[in-house]
Structures are given as C-alpha cells and as structure tokens.
Design a binder for these strands. Structure first.
Lengths: 215, 215
DNA sequence: TCTTCGATAGTACATATGTCCTATCGGGCT
DNA sequence: AGCCCGATAGGACATATGTACTATCGAAGA
C-alpha cells in the first residue's frame, strides 16, 4: 500500500465527508490523477483528527456541514494540529455565513458539490501550491458578506423564537426580559437583515443559514 | 464496451444527477457489484430521456432536485416513456412534499444521500425485483404527510409574498385582489401549517420545501 | 342537480407589531 | 478616564395582524 512514505511527489489527500456517496465520488475523481493519492477518508471531524495525527495529508477536502462538529471548528482544530495543512471546503449550498467563518478559520478554497471533475482537480492542485481557490459565485457571496452586519447572539436567539411563532411578549417571557427589549432586538434584526418585517427577517436569516431549519 | 446486450442477468442502471461527485460516487459504489451494470449517467432529466429512448435501464437512480425540470415531472415522464421502469429517488434532505409527490409520480423507493453503500445496493436490488424500498425515517415522514392538508396554489402564492415581507395590503395590490382576501388566504395557511402567525407559517413552509429559499 | 371547495369580499374588534424616542448599565478598548 | 456597544427598559402612537363571522361565484365531482 505504501512503498516510499515522505519524499515522493504525490499529493496526499484526505477526504472528510459524512456522505458515503460523496466520499466515493471524490475518491474516484481524484484517484484518476496519477500524482494524487487519497491517503484516507473520514466520515467525521473526529475521525479526521485521528488520521491526521497518524499521517499528515497535504490537502484536506472536507464538507462544512457534518454532524457532531461544526465544519468551521473542525478547520480551526485541524490547523491547530498541523498549521500548514491546506483545507479545501466542500460546500453544498452556498450558505454565506458558513463560508465567511470557514475563511476566518483558515480554509484555502471552496468547492460547490456540483463542481465538475476538472475543477475539483484544479482546485486541489492550487491549494497544494498554497494558492487560494475560490469560484466566482462564491467570491461574489463573500464580497457581499463583507460589510454586512451580523446579528448579535441575543438577536439570533430572539429571531429563532420569532421564527417559531413567538410573539414579542412570549419571547420576552421565555428569555426573562421585557417585551420592550425584545422589540429592540427585533428592530435591530430588521435593520441588519434589511427586512421590512419580522417575517422577512426570518426568511433572510434562514437563507443565510443563520437559523437552522430542521436538519 | 458491450458484448451481450439483452439477455444477460445483469441489472442495468441509469444514474441521473446534476452533481458530478454524486454521479461518480454512485457509479463507483454500484460498479463494484458484479451483477450490476451502470449503463449510463445523465446530468439532467432531458439527457436521461434521450438515454432511455436508446436503451431501457432496469433501474433509474435519480435526484429529485435538479435544474430545468422538477424531479417529479421527470419521474412521470420516464414512466410514460417506459411504464415498467423502476425509479429509485435519491433525495438530499428530506423535504416532505417532494417525497410525497415523487411517490404519486411513481417512484419505487427512496435513498437519502447519506445512505451507506450496502443500503444503496440493497435498495437497487429490491426495486429491481419490483419491491418498494423506503427507509424508516422517510416512511415516518410519508406517514406524517398523510392527512396533512396542502396549501392551494393561491395560498402558496400569498405565502411566498408574505415571506418576502409583503404586508397583506401590499400582497393584495400585487395580486390584484382585496386585502381581505389576502387575510383569508393567510389565515388558512396558518390553519393548514398549524402556525401561530404568518412568521411561523413561513418557517414551516420553508422547512417543508413549499417555499424556495434561493437555490 | 346538488354539493363541495377555492377564491373572492366584506365588517368588526382585540391585539401585535414596528417606529421613534430616551435612558441606564457593564464590559472592553484606547 | 473616556468611549462605544450590546443588552436592558420604557412611553407613545400609527398600523398591521389575526379572528370570527357572513356571503357570492364558478368549477369540479357525486
């Protein structure tokens, strides 16, 4: 399985994704490149840490949305373990906030799951050379996300209740604060999300991935 | 590429998915079974129709959410072309309504994209034998969906506007009807979605996949 | 033909919502 | 020490929302 370990010219890749189909697909795509070597596959961040502690991959291709651990935490942790590891994020739908956070956590590039094989291969090579790979549409979203105010923890908490049909009064009771305060929070949500009312605020929050809607 | 065409014992499979990664992953998984033959891959419903007109597969493994055409339409169309074709739906997140509609359109089974290889293989064999394959969690959702009232087209239209921050009056103007009528529609949305207010109604509609939130 | 149902429209009323202010408190940063 | 900011709280007021009714019309189905 391995003959020479360190100094061959191949790019060692670790795939981290909880979907078996995606893992197999990526392996199939990447294995067809002679200078690529898929040195491992993990279905969770925890599993990935174990593998990385054994042998350090050059490039990690990982999904942002996984059970157990937020993808962004996983990125930060991987880079704590091995600071110069290159992480390429595989993101399904472009939930803006996650992409921003992944960047801050140290991701070197992004791939949408509908990316064709050649692009994926190209992206791996680029991040291996320590270049960033960011598709135009994601770059666009990143750009839009800049200068966008983000909701405070409390505001998010309030908005999550509002999304579930809580009135200001109900939310106030739940949070042990005055309904006037809840109003203030809702109002600043409206401002920050550029929404006309609480309902639109919830829609925007969901589409930005600020609020979880089931799984 | 082909030696015998018709009368070998292999199960001919067509994969339809717009994600290259998923197509490759499924092919890799299914090709490892000696009695399976992936006879084609399509990235759109239209492409799938063309393939099917050339050679009829035993089992079609297709994604519900694809550009161009609704997956459920595609299912109906495929079964119009070749009535006894077996269709196995690959569904990413379990958006209830789609699953119900896919069933009505003639799908024989469902697979979540996080399904392990053995399950996928098993599912293909089952639908090939004209048995249904429905994972427990999806069966659960189907069960819950039964007896659940669905929104009328007009109600959906209204709710979509409400989700975007339209007041009743604004929506009324947009739809050239009275705001009283809009109220009536909103009220029946609340009833049917079991929501306390318009905001919760929107949340529920989004989580059921009744309202599109971007892509 | 009779019935059901979706879409339409209306009235009346209680309550919720959103806006515009002011104001206090505590933590963090310069 | 001075400042900013998030979280807190409040008053006042115009509007929107939700509820509970009634009622008409036309299409689809029994």
């Amino acid at each position: 399985m391995n003959g020479s370990a360190e100094s061959d010219a191949r790019i060692n890749i670790l795939i981290v994704d909880d979907h078996p189909v995606v893992r197999q697909g990526l392996r199939a795509m990447l294995s067809s490149e002679p200078d690529f070597s898929v040195m491992g596959m993990a279905m969770s961040a925890r599993e990935a840490f174990g593998i990385v502690r054994g042998q350090v991959p050059d490039v990690v291709l990982m999904d942002l949305r996984m059970p157990e651990m937020e993808g962004t935490e996983a990125i930060a942790e991987l880079r704590r373990i091995t600071p110069n590891i290159r992480i390429l994020v595989l993101t399904n739908y472009g939930s803006d906030e996650y992409i921003v956070r992944a960047t801050q956590a140290g991701a070197m590039g992004y791939l949408l799951k509908n990316t064709p094989q050649e692009e994926i291969v190209k992206a791996v090579r680029m991040v291996y050379r320590n270049e960033r790979y960011v598709p135009k549409d994601i770059a666009q979203r990143l750009f839009e996300a800049i200068g966008r105010e983000e909701l405070s923890p409390r505001e998010l908490e309030v908005l999550a209740l509002v999304a579930r049909g809580y009135t200001n009064k109900d939310a106030a009771q739940k949070l042990f604060i005055s309904d006037k305060t809840v109003r203030n929070h809702v109002t600043s949500c409206l401002l920050k999300l550029q929404a006309k009312d609480r309902t639109e605020a919830v829609t925007r929050a969901i589409e930005r991935g600020l609020i979880r809607v089931q799984d």
